[in-house]
Design a protein around this nucleic acid. Structure first.
Lengths: 179, 179
DNA sequence: AGACGATGGTCTGAAACGTACGATGGGGAC
DNA sequence: GTCCCCATCGTACGTTTCAGACCATCGTCT
């Protein structure tokens, strides 16, 4: 982020991330203070500390840092993306849930994904045709694609639940430890 | 999981999760040993320890546990799902990458998502029409939807990169700390 | 009898996390 | 002009999570 934005304080990073990468990779802000320190000690960043009143800590990338960054970008990505979706977990275990729970869950999810889609579409409208940002907007398409996929899914769950097509019993326990 | 499967050892959980929920919520296996202990101390599980050679630790859910579980399932889900996608991060910062990096990245991703789709489709074929499991198969549809969305996205990135339509320069640093 | 893989479990050091807390400065209300 | 609020900027710290090394047992095949 520092390589892209130029010299930044941790607070700058926090805001920049909040508006961009944060959507698909969350950072607790405390990390944005400890990590730069680590990277600076490793020689990948340099710290310029203000002497005036605010005493801001402004980090810039070093040549070594740039090299490491480019090496990382060139490296292949082995892992598949990770997801953590509480709604999906609840759906998976919905056979243990009470009547109406699934329908309510699906409705909530439809709503949430619609809001998120709105948010993304507005971002695209505002920044979409600023050529400087166009590159960074690519990932927005992926986010939107995912959101639309999720939205369609939950809509169909909602409709099926409303039509009573999903089991959603609250049956007795099964037995087996085997299989 | 224990409520659904019936009495289970941590190892049972590990396997069961590996074949199902694990795809959208990963658990390091060590947690599957420490958590049940915690839940047992909290009264939500009971432990039956074998006295024979193996001394397996088999957990079952208590009435209190069932109640807590159903309460949790009925609770609204506030958070949006979390994603962690290294490929997406690299794409976001691709303006700092070397020539060819984006194309390579996209190709890898296409391949990975295709493999994952295969895996899911095979699961559906094998278990799809076993009525007992049908309920648990719903989430598979969401997984597939996401995978197809990602696949299409990365294909389009790949094609655009091949046609040289993406900037992918390695330009000089920007200046601003502001905005 | 021995090898080996599946089963079953524990421990630990390092990261990550959330969150409370402290401080400064600029700008608007008055 | 002064006062207060909010955005800015930063630190500290206890708790969870995590990866991964490690250990033991059992069944089965050779």
């Amino acid at each position: 982020m520092i390589a892209m934005r130029g010299p930044s304080t941790s607070y700058d990073l926090k805001r920049a991330i909040g508006r961009s990468v944060g959507y698909f990779w969350n950072f607790p802000h405390a990390q944005l203070y400890s990590e730069p320190k680590r990277l600076q000690e490793a020689g990948l960043l340099v710290l310029h500390e203000e002497e005036s009143g605010r005493r801001r800590k402004i980090y810039s990338i070093t040549e070594e840092g740039s090299v490491a960054l480019r090496a990382w970008l060139a490296e292949p990505v082995n892992e598949h993306f990770e997801m953590r979706d509480i709604a999906e977990i609840k759906l998976f275990f919905s056979e243990l849930a009470g009547p109406g729970d699934v329908a309510r869950l699906a409705r909530e999810q439809v709503h949430q994904h619609e809001r998120r889609i709105d948010e993304y579409e507005r971002m695209r409208e505002r920044y979409g045709d600023i050529p400087e940002l166009a590159g960074r907007m690519i990932t927005l398409d992926l986010g939107l694609g995912m959101e639309y996929a999720a939205l369609e899914f939950w809509k169909s769950v909602r409709d099926r639940a409303d039509r009573g097509e999903l089991p959603e019993m609250m049956s007795g326990k099964r037995s087996a430890r085997s299989s």
